[in-house]
Design a protein around this nucleic acid. Structure first.
Lengths: 251, 251
DNA sequence: GGTTTGGTTTCCACTGAGTGGAAACGTCGA
DNA sequence: TCGACGTTTCCACTCAGTGGAAACCAAACC
């Protein structure tokens, strides 16, 4: 080989690094991909060509690379996402009808909460989230709910990673978080006020599968002014219960 | 190397073959993957381990491999699918409300039509389609519409591939197809009756982007008995027009 | 026009990463 | 206990992959 230094990364690793580059930016030039993937340009060039030939990535007229439909299709084969989205759809729709705000369905992925689905009312608060993005567990309603029902080592990892304070209300200390999670486990519901997005509050509840394991969380995010309205807590709880039932959960 | 025969496939190729294996089967054992990918077991084993380490595939307690959330997330970064789904959602919802049948949004991927979205009424006809599946261009409403506005070489390729006859009504000959596509181009609408699914008919219309290019198609699939009802053609046409407008199309 | 700048594509000599057959290992069910 | 079937590990061989460097291309600038 020309030389070496790039520390014995396998070819597969390199292929994956390139895929990773697209998690943070949808339309990338060769050089951008190379930078993000920490690979030499020439190597990146060759591997990108293989990706394109396969069809997972496509190259636009502008020379930029994008994720292709083939890769999108592959994603649709993820069993959990497929099943949950399918079953949850009607419940989330009802929730949206009743509130006209943001409705979310999320699962935990490592130390983040990933939105599988997001429905939004026409004039809902602007939020950063989007389907497929990964948000911190400690600063979102769904995240806290998922964390509350995750194995303890996940909690430890979150703490170890140093939970970032997004807003004054964000919980960051061990004690604060523990108290909140205990409350969630007790009541089966979480209410967060301005912990990630200012001007917004969220209500979230756990979704259980047939074995009783918490596999997802449902939430509504709305403007703080509406915090007092009772239908949020009720709606989220009922939706979560409905989806759980659809998954085969019997209390 | 131990030997060779597997004809100079590059590592990347092999990695991709493994991904392909999951397009046809969601939960696969090592041996199944090896068979589908046409790779030696030991090679498959090693590469699967790398996939799992990366997180794109996950291995369940049952030893089977599945597509992981990471790969699903990567799919959500596909710009076309994301944009179209987002914009189309409200129009498709309206269409569903008005008809209570199957509502589809599809794009062309090579020689197939891929459903980006499918909403279904509670008691709609059972159909084989699902989000992410690829259906033949010549035998579906959306497919014919997409074909009508694709470059001529796509049509040639479809003919060359030998269009399969699914039901007596399926169009298969050059002449039949040409006539139908001409009609679609003229009227901006397609009506198919029992061409893929018996007992079902579909109405489909093209979606255009800001440049006037047809980028997707909308359709309704319903039971033949309702064929005479006028709201289908109207609804599909209006939905397609609405989505086009949202994409920036000005007639 | 010439020159710089920023990205892309091609080339090629070198070598260790990748290979896959085979054997060992588990785990069923009879 | 034994066979059948799937999984995991091993290892000697070698060619696929490597990446620096140079050529290339297209704007933008002087």
């Amino acid at each position: 080989m020309g030389d070496s230094e790039g520390a014995g990364r396998s070819v597969a690793d390199k292929v994956f690094s390139i895929a990773d580059a697209f998690q943070s930016g949808d339309e990338l030039t060769l050089t951008e991909v190379a930078q993000r993937a920490r690979l030499p340009i020439s190597t990146t060039h060759r591997l990108l060509a293989e990706w394109v030939e396969w069809g997972g990535l496509v190259r636009g007229d502008d020379g930029r690379y994008r994720v292709g439909i083939k890769l999108w299709r592959l994603g649709t084969r993820q069993p959990t996402a497929r099943r949950l989205r399918d079953l949850a759809r009607p419940y989330l729709d009802d929730l949206l009808d009743a509130t006209r705000e943001h409705v979310h369905l999320a699962v935990r992925d490592d130390l983040g909460a990933v939105y599988l689905e997001r429905l939004s009312g026409r004039d809902a608060v602007p939020v950063i989230s989007d389907v497929g993005t990964r948000l911190p567990l400690h600063a979102t309603g769904v995240g806290l709910v998922l964390l509350a029902f995750s194995p303890p080592e996940v909690f430890d990892a979150v703490l170890a990673a140093g939970p970032r304070r997004y807003l004054p209300n964000t919980l960051t200390s061990d004690a604060q978080l523990r108290a909140r999670l205990a409350e969630i486990r007790l009541t089966g519901l979480d209410t967060s006020v301005e912990e990630l997005t200012s001007g917004a509050f969220s209500v979230a509840a756990p979704v259980r599968d047939a074995t009783g394991t918490v596999v997802a969380a449902v939430s509504i995010v709305a403007r703080v002014e509406r915090k007092a309205e009772p239908q949020f807590a009720l709606g989220v709880r009922m939706a979560a219960r409905g989806i759980s039932a659809a998954l085969g959960w019997r209390p």
